[in-house]
């Protein structure tokens, strides 16, 4: 039997490398997937430009953050980016509405097939991608300031006397807090307000919504505003936690799609749950459990290999695998989304 301390150490180890990172990544994906799912259920297409919208919003936040920093404005222990977030959201809203007016509206009026929307959204993806790279360049940007850690592994070790350390980055707490606020606000809006209910009605049955006098243009407008806000928030949190790189954000598209589809596309709760499912799977499947089992197993049974299901390089592939499996086994997702 392992000693009690060893069990504690194993739990701390697991928390440090799996639980905490997966929770914050899951929250970021959940916010992103909410945007994908809202576009899908109200505008009725899979938006391939969503990752790049996220990149654009985040880029705006970064530029404004730099502006604030050069003016000497800071947010105390919190990252300045949080102050810049509302302005970044405005920029992303502007871009979304511009593309809606110049591109999507035409096909919406024509009632084009979803495939056509997918193709034009890739056009928007190209353009947004180019705008971001043109303005901020293709390379890595870090824009995190303020306090980095709530506590460091060393402090944790000293405090608890355990041999394993646990780090808690302030961005991780921040991510979860902001995500909870954003999701709660969104759900309140959708469930309790007149406009939110109108959006759900429009998503549920467009013709009947029109017969009830719901103004489709207004629904579309509000959808883009919410989607842009969610995308910018998700992107900023991801960038604070890790770093900002246009290509990475483009690649986030697939885990976000995966999260939305796994949860049940069109279902906001599904998007949130899906985000965590994807994040946890990615981290759990690619974590090497060797040390974890050393703590828990008697010496004679200690594992020889790394005890890893898939090498870390496959991290991104995990979400695609889950996506494909879900599409095949249960295309409506965990929370029955809109049927195919």
């Amino acid at each position: 039997m392992p000693e009690f301390v060893d069990i504690l150490n194993a739990i701390v180890l697991f928390s440090n490398f799996v639980l905490v990172p997966a929770i914050s990544y899951g929250a970021q994906l959940a916010l992103g997937a909410l945007g994908v799912t809202l576009v899908y259920s109200i505008l009725r297409f899979s938006n391939f430009a969503h990752g790049d919208l996220m990149a654009f919003g985040t880029m705006s936040v970064i530029l404004i953050t730099w502006g604030f920093q050069s003016m000497g404005i800071s947010f105390g222990p919190l990252p300045t980016a949080l102050l810049a977030l509302p302005f970044g959201i405005l920029c992303a809203i502007g871009l979304s509405l511009m593309f809606d007016k110049t591109v999507y509206k035409f096909y919406r009026v024509k009632k084009s097939a979803p495939v056509i929307f997918v193709i034009v959204s890739t056009g928007v993806m190209f353009m947004t991608n180019a705008i971001v790279r043109f303005i901020i360049g293709p390379s890595d940007q870090r824009f995190m300031d303020g306090t980095k850690f709530i506590f460091r592994p060393r402090e944790f070790k000293e405090f608890t006397g355990l041999s394993e350390g646990l780090a808690l980055k302030s961005t991780q707490v921040l991510t979860l807090t902001v995500a909870i606020i954003a999701v709660a606000a969104l759900f309140y809006f959708l469930q309790k307000t007149r406009t939110g209910k109108a959006m759900r009605a429009f998503s549920d049955n467009e013709d009947l919504a029109l017969l009830s006098g719901i103004n489709p243009d207004r629904v579309v407008l509000i959808t883009w505003i919410i989607v842009a806000a969610l995308a910018t928030t998700a992107g900023t949190l991801y960038g604070l936690d890790k770093s900002f790189k246009p290509f990475t954000y483009f690649m986030l598209l697939l885990p976000m799609f995966a999260a939305a589809i796994v949860g049940g596309i069109g279902s906001p709760i599904g998007a949130v749950v899906g985000g965590f499912v994807i994040a946890f799977s990615e981290v759990i499947v690619t974590y090497a459990y060797k040390k974890f089992f050393i703590y828990l197993m008697p010496e004679s049974l200690e594992p020889s290999g790394l005890m890893q299901f898939l090498s870390t390089d496959y991290k991104f592939a995990v979400s695609f695998i889950i996506l494909v499996v879900v599409l095949l086994m249960r295309p409506t997702g965990i929370f029955k989304g809109q049927s195919i």
């Binding site: 297409f45 899979s46 097939a113 979803p114 495939v115 997918v118 697939l254 799609f257 995966a258 589809i261 390089d313 496959y314 991104f316 592939a317 979400s319 695609f320 695998i321 996506l323 494909v324 599409l327 095949l328 295309p331 195919i340």
Partner: peptide
């Protein structure tokens, strides 16, 4: 495995599979 899917799901599935191949 994927050809029964609706058009945009097929697009996402194939995009994902191509990433798996590259990985």
């Amino acid at each position: 495995i994927t050809l029964g899917l609706r058009s945009d799901y097929l697009a996402i599935a194939t995009l994902g599979i191509s990433e798996i191949i590259i990985a």
